[in-house]
Amino acid sequence: MLHIKCPHCGMRSQNEFSYGGDASVKRPELNKEVSDLEWDNFVYNRKSLRGKHWELWQHLSGCRQWIKVERDTATHEIFKTLKADQEIS
């Protein structure tokens, strides 16, 4: 079970969180014309990375904040966690 540092609450067990997918995906702005490909890339197309990966988790059974977690998908090592409004560096 992973041990995730919530930027709001501190170290917490994985079972308090729920996974929310790739954090690098940006939703196209509302009312903006987007091509099929652009939209497909947003909705469906994801790289299945082996290694460092920025992902979203929600501290569901805690502060309910969505957070950004940089995790190695192969080793589960967690390098960094950010608040929702902090940009991935």
């Binding site: 729920s18 929310g20 939703r27 979203l56 929600q58 569901l60 309910r64 904040q65 969505w66 929702a84 409004d85």
Partner: peptide, 13 residues
Amino acid sequence: LSHLEYYLQLVWP
């Protein structure tokens, strides 16, 4: 609820 929180916190803060 999680859906609304997602958009409020991440997409349209």
